[in-house]
Structure formats: structure tokens, C-alpha cells
Amino acid sequence: MAVDTQNKGYSRYSIWKVFLLHFLPPVVLFLGIWVLPYRQGLNLIEHPAETLRIAGVLQVFFSIVMYSFMSLKERRCPSVWMAIWRSILSLPIGAFVLIFIAIIFGAPWELEHRLKSAFWGQLISAIVVLPAGIVLGGSWLDWQRLFASTRPQGVLEYSVCIPAHGAVIGAWFGAWPMPLDWERPWQEWPVSVTYGMAAGYFAGEIISFILSVVKARNEVSKED
């Protein structure tokens, strides 16, 4: 089994590494959605497209750097160029699939919303699909195992899989207040969904961190 052989190549993670692996992405997401746009006088409610673009671009670069670095250390990726190639491939496909799912769930399909939707797709793809794309590559079985069956193995896969699930479930919950008649600007697409996604992502990182410390590190060490 491919997974097993790869697992043997895992380096042992110190608790600090695990912490950074789970701490940095939420910080970057926080910077991207709140801090950086505010410095430029933008906010998610009034300028959703611009804010999401900033957050998305930041997240993309960060994810490429961090996960290529992490994967390379694990020898799961043959080369740097491969990592970049995988991210170029996975980001738009992920964005396309996620926007499609969002529209199926009821996101507006009118063309006037296209920019918002596109940048929202970029952001959610950068936190849900892109890390997995860099780490897993084109292995259908791994994708299936992580996303259809939710069976990650090892710290790196936990840090990819659990926050991604958190982000998707959070976005799903984030759509709940949209039909209420409170007439608040944050009920618009994609504001509340983005909030929900961020909250779910943060929660996912925390859960993943706990699981990594408690479970995944031991799993790897047992296999060693």
C-alpha cells in the first residue's frame, strides 16, 4: 500500500512543529480577511470582492510555501516545481468545484455576483483544496480516503483534512442566517458564508491540533 510506504518516510514531529503547522494558517487567514484589508480601508461587508481577493492571494502564497516545504521534507513530492504545478492545477479546479457546490446550495448565479463568487472560490479553494493538492498530488485513492471517508493518517494529513472539513461545514452553517429578515448587510452572499468558513476553519485547526498531539503522532511512532 502506497500510504504505508510513505508513512515510513515521515519525520517525527516535535510538538512545536505541530503547533506551528496548525497555528500559522489561521493567523494568515485572519490577517487576510481582517487585518490587511482594514489597513487599506476595506472590509468584508462593504467590499466583499476586494477583501476576499486579498485574503485569497495571501492564503494561496502562504499555502504554497508552507505545504510545499512540509511535503518536501516528507519526500512526498518529487520537486519544488512539482509542488507549484500541483497548486496551479488544484487551485482552479477546487475553486470551480466549490463554487459549483455553493451555487447548487443556493448561492446566486446571476452574473452581477461573479466577482464575489470567484474570489470566494479562490479563498475557500486555497484553504480546502490547495493544501491537499500539494500534499496528496494526483492520487485518487488518497483524495477519496481523506475527503469521502475522512480517514487521515499522520500529522500532515490531519492538518490538511480536518481544517478543510471544518471550513466546509462552517460555510454550510454560515448560510443559515441568510434567509432571515434581519436585513443586516452581513447576511448577503458571501459574507456570512465566509465568516462561517473562517470559524469552522479555526475550529478545525484546533481539533486537528489536539488529534495530532494525542493520536497522529503516536500512530506514526508506532509504525516506525
Partner: peptide, 8 residues
């Protein structure tokens, strides 16, 4: 999707 191709 869980069942898709799990026999390969």
C-alpha cells in the same frame, strides 16, 4: 464516492 473505485 466512498464506494467509487475502492476495489482497485
Amino acid at each position: 464516492i466512498q464506494r467509487l473505485g475502492c476495489f482497485q
